[in-house]
Write a protein that binds this DNA or RNA. Structure first.
Length: 380
DNA sequence: CGCTGCGGGTGGT
DNA sequence: ACCACCCGCAGCG
């Protein structure tokens, strides 16, 4: 019964994101293809029954990352790493933020941490949180499989997520650290003293909290409305607002996303570092200051014929302070069009993206990260 | 503290 | 045999 559906899905994948040869293998095969012609850019949101072959040098693949909240599952097979989806944490009151977004938090991976998480309240309405579990694979959570073989890392996913996307790992981390910083701060009597001192000296500094915040407002976390107003008023880079917004409220799966597109995230800088840049560019796409907004997450820079490190390089080197857009190259770019197999296979993401991920874009990334943090800061 | 991987173990089909 | 899942342990950031 499921078979029909599965196969259909597989077929779709074959034509869509897989290039011909590929799907001839299954993660459980004794031997996996070694004559891989093309490797894929790391996929941030793999969904349905897809398979991908990544370079063994791809950092995200090495870490078996995914923006879905996937936890390790024991399949008693040390050669194949299996992970299953934890779903998404939503607001029990089904509240919406003032700008209409829903709360989609990332379930903690660690069991204990997840239980703790569920005892917390909705950051928006303070209502209870609810874990929406994934049942996309025959009633069970979607599973992802990773297998390292030679110079490739094979990936296969089974099941289609039947729930919205949670925050990405980075987004969740940002939120956590912000929260941590905040509590640490308010708990720090030492600092309070300091502040008081300062206060007495300068006569300024109203509330202790203001200190670390400086540029944020009390409710930025949920802020949308004001925030926007604020932004436009102060005419700050739109990126920031979008950044923080996305940060907290990732879009629902396939929501519209127009997506159908491949939500790929660029590979190098990826996972983690550039949270939802791709989406940013789609929804808020504030053409970066300097930028010609040719960054199309889905279509990739193909438009300008670059799709390559060249554009990436130029971009990152000339616009270091730019918003953290994902590297121009995105999935479709290399895969579908069968373009540029060269840099992937022959020059394993090393000198190019590999390093880029650690070097170039990082500046931009950090930049973004900081901004996100700032915007997010006022967590409550 | 939480993420990640490992693997022993259980129960269901 | 296969699968989902629980649990604790260990390395790491």
């Amino acid at each position: 019964m499921l078979k029909g559906a599965d196969e259909a899905a597989v077929e779709q994948e074959n034509s869509a994101s897989q290039h011909g040869e590929m799907t001839s293998w299954d993660i459980n095969d004794i031997k996996l293809p070694q004559d891989v012609r093309q490797i894929d850019w790391f996929q941030e949101w793999p969904d349905s029954y897809v398979k991908h072959i990544y370079s063994s040098e791809d950092k995200n693949a090495q870490r078996h990352h995914s923006s879905w909240a996937m936890r390790n599952t024991n399949n008693h097979n040390s050669r194949i790493l299996k992970k299953s989806c934890l779903g998404v944490v939503v607001c029990g009151n089904d509240c919406s933020t003032s700008d209409g977004r829903k709360i989609y938090l990332r379930p903690a991976i660690c069991d204990k941490a997840r239980q703790k998480q569920q005892r917390k309240c909705c950051p928006n309405c303070n209502g209870p949180l609810k874990l929406l579990s994934c049942r996309g694979h025959g009633g069970y959570p979607v599973t992802n499989f990773w297998r390292h073989e030679g110079q490739f890392i094979f990936f296969q996913s089974k099941g289609a997520h039947d729930h919205p996307r949670p925050e990405t790992k980075l987004e969740a981390e940002a939120r956590r650290s912000i929260h941590k910083a905040q509590t640490a701060f308010s708990a720090s009597s030492v600092r309070l003293k300091r502040i008081q001192e300062i206060e007495s000296l300068t006569g300024a500094m109203p509330m202790p909290e203001a200190l670390p915040l400086l540029l944020s407002k009390p409710d930025a976390y949920v802020i949308p409305a004001n925030f926007r107003g604020h932004l436009s008023k102060s005419s700050q880079e739109p990126t920031l607002s979008s950044c923080s917004g996305q940060l907290l409220y990732p879009r629902a799966a396939g929501e519209d996303e127009g997506s159908g597109e491949a939500l790929t995230w660029s590979q190098g800088p990826s996972l983690g570092r550039i949270p939802s840049a791709e989406r940013l560019s789609q929804h808020v796409l504030p053409v970066p200051k300097g930028g010609h907004g040719s960054f199309r997450p889905n279509t990739g820079p193909l438009g300008d014929g670059s799709c390559g490190e060249k554009s990436l390089l130029t971009y990152s080197s000339s616009c270091l302070s730019l918003p953290p857009y994902p590297a121009p190259q995105s999935g479709p770019c290399s895969r579908v069009s069968g373009a540029q197999p060269h840099r992937q296979l022959s020059a394993p993401l090393r000198g190019s993206e590999g390093d880029m991920s650690e070097g170039g874009p990082q500046v931009g990334l950090n930049y973004c990260h900081n901004d996100m943090v700032f915007n997010l800061y006022p967590l409550r």
